[in-house]
Amino acid sequence: MNSSWQRFSRWLKAHLVLIGGLLVIVYMFIPISVVVLMSFNKPDSKLVYKFDAFTLQNWLHPCADPSMCHAVRRSIEIGLLATIVATVLGTLMAFALVRHRFEGRGAANLIIFMPMASPEIVMGSSLLALFVASGFGGQLGFGTILIAHIMFCLSFVVVTVRARLAGLDNNLEQAAMDLYATEAQTFRRITFPLVFPGILGAALLSFSLSFDDFIITNLNAGNTTTFPMYVWGVAQRGVPMQVNVIGTLMFIISIVIVVGAEINRRRQEKALA
């Protein structure tokens, strides 16, 4: 009895940090489990406080409130466009920073770093100030949201792609040139395939940043409603349970992408080992 207690306390001591870490993860997942649970809730009244009854209705009819699905579509459109533009521009910048020597590198780095170190409320309000001052105050909407999203996604793309590019062995490109590949062929056969995972990661990050942004968007949206803005609006008057369906879907999709990438990586490693 005594010795098993000792053994337990020794085990506990050895695993204390791991247990603590797992508890933190549990903490991070509590609200998400509520989101998943509530996506199956059939509330008694409009103001929901608890899980009342199980239903699949929310999943079968996600667009019960058409304005929500409309907002989701808006967010996806903006997210895709912002991701494409930010990924292309940011990748070019990352190449410039890693592969080319030029004057003004410090200034370029500063401009790229600053948006990541600025509070969203400041970026949002300064963009609004610019739009109003330049006479676009009446035309806030899809276009201004897109401009803002490209702006704050850019820095994250540059940083992500730059890290991947900097980790690339310089010798590989030289080896390709030594093996009769022209500059263009070297880029297409060696550089691009090796940097691509970084670019893909940057694109995924951009999309989720754009899809999820509220503070900057809210200041520059005019009458256009994105999904986070829709949620903000209904938060005051009663949240339809379909919002949880969208939340759950986002969670599942991101898990599938991340786990899929990991499994793919492991399979490649194992394939012929």
């Binding site: 010798n171 590989l172 030289q174 080896a175 040139m177 030594d178 093996l179 022209t182 060696i190």
Partner: peptide, 28 residues
């Protein structure tokens, strides 16, 4: 240019292309 010279190099840390298999590395 390096790709116009009838000269090839065995690099210090080999610089094998990590995303290509052995066959494609040799065939490059």
């Amino acid at each position: 240019k390096p790709y116009r010279r009838p000269v090839n190099t065995v690099f210090q840390n080999y610089a094998l292309f990590p995303h290509l298999d052995i066959y494609e590395n040799v065939a490059f």
